[in-house]
Design a protein around this nucleic acid. Sequence first.
DNA 1: GTGCTAAATGATAATGATTATCAATATCAT
DNA 2: ATGATATTGATAATCATTATCATTTAGCAC
Lengths: 146, 146
Amino acid sequence: MNMTPVKDLVECWEENLRQNGYRVTRTRRQVMEIIAGSSTALTPREIYQLSLDQDRSLGMASVYRTVEMLEELDLIQQVHQPDGCHGIWPTVEGHKHYLICNACGRMEVVPGNEGITEYITQVEGQTGYGVEGHWLQLFGRCQSCQ
Amino acid sequence: MNMTPVKDLVECWEENLRQNGYRVTRTRRQVMEIIAGSSTALTPREIYQLSLDQDRSLGMASVYRTVEMLEELDLIQQVHQPDGCHGIWPTVEGHKHYLICNACGRMEVVPGNEGITEYITQVEGQTGYGVEGHWLQLFGRCQSCQ
DNA sequence: GTGCTAAATGATAATGATTATCAATATCAT
DNA sequence: ATGATATTGATAATCATTATCATTTAGCAC
């Protein structure tokens, strides 16, 4: 596993914060690193728990505040799962779908395809709805959990 | 709009309760009628609020308990939405997808299709995951909200 | 229908998650 | 380095959900 992507992502987020008038603080960096470095969608509580292993632990309120800010900047988003709602995950460019391992929670992002687009057009014709967006999430088992 | 489907659904649920050793009480009937009669996915709080308009209002705890029971019997399920998670909706036979109006919250159920199945097979090949299930939810505007 | 017994109810307390408050601290432009 | 101000963390307040328990009710036996 290459660590560079995590560092790049955090630096990109920091730049985004500065451009939007937010200060880049130690607390925010810590939250961003934990989110960017995770292979599963985390809850605020999990982010807090993970911070306990580090030099300085975070305040619960700061975790919520930072998550809220990152969400407003569209740098992260909430992913819904059958059990715990509200897992936090970095936003990806373009429209993507989530693939989640039922056993270990690992999450992958997979691109959409034509079949889905056709299906949506078909639904629009049948129902009279104008479809503006969609969620597709796949649940299963990753290679190491099979 | 024909009212019969709601009545039928509630009777079917009552039968299901009896067969599973649960008593059919006034409280449970009230909760079931509210859920079955709604065109939007409700939260426990909304079910409670709606009961205030009736002869006898429900206890909040009973709403939670009844919802939990209906979920265990697989008669209802939780539908996740971008804002409020955990809307409650009757379970439908077979695998279906949800179509939700962003404006009024009205929900429809639409059948799946081949395109989705093909897409999933393709993802399995690309990622090595074994896909066991999926969620597809479409968001847009119903005819009357356009 | 009457009475019995266990299940179910509703009021309320307890817990857990999220948000608001505020004095102390840290960031960043100067 | 200094100062103005955004941010932090501790804590209190709020809201959602779950547990407790005395009272009530459904369903069964008669």
